[in-house]
Amino acid sequence: MTFDQPSHAEDPAHSNRLHVAVIMDGNGRWATNRGWPRLVGHRKGAERVRELVDACPDIGIKYLTLYAFSTENWKRSTEEVMGLMSLFARYVKREAGRMNREGVRLRVIGDRTRLDCKLRELFDWIERETAGNDRVHLTVAVNYGGRDEIRRATQAIARDVAAGKLEPENVSDATLSDYMDTHFLPDPDLVVRTSGETRVSNFLLWQSAYSEYVFTPVLWPDFTPQTMNTILQNFGQRERRFGGVLK
């Protein structure tokens, strides 16, 4: 798969470390619009994930973080929730070989305590299986919520302070980042939300403080690597000041 490189890819700092996070929205709507069950849309969305991961090296993405299931998604029907959990398991099993061949490292963030023990074991297995890969870092958020993540991180800090492992005055922004689920990732450069919604939906609240955002009307099952490449080309034209002033 070949694309014209986006302008930011000419900058080694970007091409080596570009982190894009995606709120994958619109699967159910895509299926409903066609008179199909919502799970059909989720299965089509999983195909798009595979295509985008394959394309990441060509379009300059080193780190790709995907919002797959939020802490609020448990409110959906039992059928849809169970279908999504089965889809996660099938994706891991089916894609394990491909990920190793393509140098993809997969990690899962979020609170796993509510997940089925077999799914937790599968996530642990794929993380170990792909731990040596470094071409693309794929992170999938499952039972994840930004507020929940911050709560769990501050609880962990409080425990370490109480145990004498950490002095309160030494708690900095970097300290909190080290206790977050994403401690192994750079903050996202760009957050993309599909389906036309313009909410951040409790995703990477701490990490995206200075991220650029793109809200696209494209439903996730229609979101192709070329769509992402176009977004990245536009992103390359943005001036990121991080609170400062360009000289």
Rank of each mutant, 00 (worst) to 15 (best):
Thr230Lys: 14
Val81Asp: 09
Val142Gln: 04
Arg29Tyr: 08
Arg29Cys: 02
Val49Asp: 06
Glu212Asn: 02
Asn229Val: 00
His42Phe: 05
Gly26His: 13
Arg151Trp: 08
Ala21Arg: 04
Arg29Asn: 09
Lys93Pro: 07
Asp148Asn: 11
Val81Phe: 13
Ala46Met: 03
Gly41Glu: 03
Leu185Asn: 15
Leu52Gln: 12
Leu52Lys: 00
Leu64Asn: 01
Pro12Tyr: 11
Tyr144Asp: 07
Gly35Arg: 08
His19Trp: 06
Glu102Gln: 13
Cys56Trp: 07
Arg98Thr: 07
Gln237Ile: 01
Val108Asp: 08
His19Gln: 07
His19Ile: 09
Pro186Cys: 12
Phe123Val: 06
His14Ser: 12
Trp206Gln: 10
Glu197Asn: 13
Ile23Leu: 11
Thr198Trp: 00
Val22Glu: 01
Arg240Phe: 10
Glu212His: 12
Leu246Tyr: 13
Asp111Arg: 15
Glu80Asp: 03
Gly45Gln: 11
Glu47Pro: 03
Gly28Gln: 07
Leu190Arg: 10
His19Arg: 07
Gln207Tyr: 11
Thr130Trp: 10
Val136Cys: 01
Ser15Ala: 14
Val108Tyr: 10
Leu66Ser: 08
Val191Thr: 04
Ile61Glu: 07
Val108Arg: 08
Thr230Phe: 09
Arg147Phe: 12
Asp4Pro: 12
Tyr91Arg: 06
Val142Asn: 10
Phe123Ser: 05
Val136Gln: 04
Leu115Gly: 00
Phe69Met: 09
Asp187His: 12
Lys247Pro: 15
Ala174Ile: 13
Pro221Arg: 11
Ser177Met: 11
Leu219Pro: 03
Tyr63Ser: 06
Trp74Lys: 00
Val104His: 11
Gly103Gln: 05
Arg76Thr: 14
Val22Tyr: 10
Phe223Ser: 08
Ala68Ser: 12
Ser172Ala: 09
Phe215Met: 00
Ala89Met: 10
Asn16Phe: 11
Thr113Glu: 14
Ser177His: 05
Phe123Glu: 01
Thr78His: 12
Ala9Phe: 02
Arg152Leu: 08
Thr194Glu: 01
Phe235Ala: 00
Arg105Phe: 04
Tyr213Trp: 14
Arg29Trp: 04
Pro217Leu: 05
Ala89Val: 04
